[in-house]
Design a protein around this nucleic acid. Structure first.
Lengths: 252, 252
DNA sequence: GTTGCCGTTCAGCAGCCTTCATCGTCCCTC
DNA sequence: GAGGGACGATGAAGGCTGCTGAACGGCAAC
């Protein structure tokens, strides 16, 4: 890849995250450390970013949106990032991928931002983080906009989902128990069930704190998932449980 | 392949990606390195692109989207605000109102923000400006997200609109001539035609500069509108023309 | 002290520019 | 209508420029 292209891609990446590390850049851009360093130097010259130890941070001050959403984004962000990277690694260029709402899935969206994809989502934050990228064709489901979750839901959303097919869905969940995946909002559950129905491969992303919580609305039994991605702190019995249900488990 | 055709193809390629490398161009255009270099030089002369080591980058600045929208928002903002206030005055609390994209309609959205309403829109900027309001229930159409206009369009959008009914639609247009209302984007026209179909009352907002422009895609004949709202500088012959077609005209 | 990151240096080579021969087209002449 | 010259466009070749990746020593972080 050429210097100009690399620098454009770095700019793009900084639109969706505010820190990029050198190792990731080398991998994503398929270039040597030296070249990436030079690119970062040039972009720093242009005030696009600021070099820091281990990578670079965006100089763009983000418009600081959303309250709850950011807090949830911060919590466990490193686990989330690792989970997100693994999830993104399962997606091939050119695929159609459904992303549902939630901060873990938003992290996946960030990791997907360099691939050439068709993304279908009902999440406004995810749409906003991807809409400027030229390599991503973005389709939104319609529906009632939940003001707290910033996600489109309800019959219109489900009807729209019913009209499409996708290679994969990447979904967060509220909780996971032996009885299956759960969530805590009727409308969210409805759209998630539809997403599972229309996607070739169902990928669930959930950090270990999601396991064993109870008392919510069931979305699907465990065997509805093809792959579950969690972090290394996940208790072994859950790994066993999932594998016994024919689910592939990846620990990031 | 001739030089003119090659250059056209290069322009097209730059619409969907922001960097093209020489090797790819040679392959895609089936031409020698020298010829492609010459083409790039000429296109650089025309400011279509900028030559960089290994290829060329588009001179179209991607962040132009946001700023275009802002420029258009600034232009005539006082006329727009007055038009918006009149339009908002036509809406009763409790109604279901469709808002299409465009800066004039965005101004109407601001004016509507104190009423208790159900708003249906395909515009992301409008959705963002209304989403936090507790008195407004917001439903978005789905569809392909046009990255420049930030509006959802296409068959999914139209299908979703086809499933609902609304008390009124408030619409901007690209131009108004004696033959009817026009716009300059095929997909936008499709969704606007659907909006007109499903709305009880069709309200067009258009400052006087929109009148008499030509050469765009027809949306609907003049008599498709119930009310057209413009500003006081609108030439009297257009007022006459609209009234002759059974359209109520309000000048803000 | 160890690890990981940084900046520098340097050989290798990809890409650039210039030059030139070739080809096709157009127009003029006979 | 055929022949020939001028012209522009094309692609190949050669020398030069500067980008790239690997290696290495130094320094910050832990």
């Amino acid at each position: 890849m050429k210097a100009a292209e690399r620098q454009l891609r770095i700019r793009q990446m900084l639109e969706t995250r505010d820190f990029v590390d050198l190792e990731t850049l080398c991998r994503e851009l398929d270039a040597s450390e030296s070249s990436v360093r030079r690119d970062l130097d040039m972009l720093e010259e242009e005030k696009v970013l600021r070099r820091v130890y281990g990578g670079a941070v965006s100089t763009e001050t983000p418009p600081a949106r959303a309250f709850d959403y950011n807090v949830e984004t911060e919590r466990l962000s490193t686990e989330k990032d690792r989970i997100a990277r693994v999830a993104a690694g399962l997606i091939e260029p050119g695929q159609t991928v459904i992303l549902d709402g939630g901060s873990t899935v938003a992290a996946v969206a960030r990791e997907l931002s360099t691939k050439s994809l068709h993304i279908v989502t009902n999440s406004l934050p995810i749409a906003e983080s991807l809409e400027t990228l030229r390599n991503i064709e973005l389709t939104l489901t319609g529906g009632y906009l939940d003001p707290r979750l910033r996600v489109m839901l309800g019959p219109f959303c489900e009807q729209m989902l019913g009209a499409i097919r996708a290679d994969a869905v990447i979904m967060g969940v509220g909780s996971i128990t032996e009885t299956g995946f759960c969530n805590n909002n009727t409308l969210v559950v409805g759209s998630e069930q539809k997403m599972i129905e229309i996607a070739g491969k169902v990928i669930i992303v959930a950090d270990h704190t999601k396991f064993g919580r109870g008392g919510m609305i069931p979305v699907a039994p465990l065997n509805a998932a093809d792959i579950v991605i969690s972090d290394r702190e996940l208790a072994p019995e859950y790994v066993e449980l999932l594998r016994a249900n024919g689910v592939e488990v990846l620990l990031a």
